[in-house]
Simulated assay, not measured.
Amino acid sequence: MVSLPEELQAREAAARQRVEELQAEAVEMAARLERARADLSRLEIRRETVMEVLAELSAADVAPEVEAHDAPEPRETPAPHGIGVMAVPPWREGLAGVLPDVYRDIVEIVADAPGPLQAKQIVPRIGLEATTAKIEGTRGKLKRLVERGWLDENMPGRFTLARHAGDAGHVNSR
């Protein structure tokens, strides 16, 4: 017959071994998680870069045609090289489709709103947590859209859809 202290020691040794096995699994899972996060980050950066390049190329393709008698003298334009790519082109009629998804979503939300919106009101509508960092990041995007003529900021921090000559309504592209 086994004594009680010996039985408790055996159970303790088995529990200790199980803990060590689980710790080893946790270390392996943490390493796998870190690799997966790195892969995700690289894919996000690639997608964002492709969207920026496509937006620039689309903006160049949709450039308004100038009548021959108004045309300035031809100049050589450098080939696009990806450095300094403009993700948000200046507003021009028919360009809503070239905006990156998050910017297009912001423009659509502002266009559908009955009045001016603040960044903190837009953040949850584009699917982000209402944290200070997300609100400030969105505010930067809103300011960029104002600079490029997509939105207006008539009152500080309150954004509306920019009105352009000939606007018939919303800029929705979907």
Rank of each mutant, 00 (worst) to 15 (best):
I122E: 03
L54E: 08
Q118H: 06
T49E: 06
V62K: 10
P89F: 05
T77I: 14
R37F: 04
D70T: 01
E34G: 05
L8S: 04
A24N: 02
V2D: 09
A14Q: 12
Q23C: 10
E52A: 15
A113W: 05
L95E: 05
P116I: 05
V53M: 08
I45M: 12
P5D: 07
D101M: 05
A60D: 14
L117M: 11
D105R: 15
Q118G: 06
L57V: 11
E52T: 11
D105C: 08
A55Y: 00
E56D: 02
A13F: 05
V107Y: 00
E25F: 06
H81N: 09
A113P: 02
V110S: 00
P124Y: 03
S58F: 07
V102C: 08
E52K: 14
A59T: 09
E34N: 09
E56A: 07
V50T: 05
E25T: 04
P89I: 01
K120A: 15
L40I: 06
G84E: 00
A113G: 03
E6L: 15
V66K: 08
E67C: 06
G94C: 03
R92P: 00
R92A: 13
G97H: 13
P80N: 01
P72S: 04
G97E: 11
A24C: 07
D105A: 12
A111K: 02
A111R: 04
H81D: 14
I109T: 09
R42Y: 11
E28A: 15
E12Y: 09
M86S: 10
R42A: 13
Q118C: 03
P78L: 15
D39I: 04
A24Y: 01
A60G: 07
P78M: 13
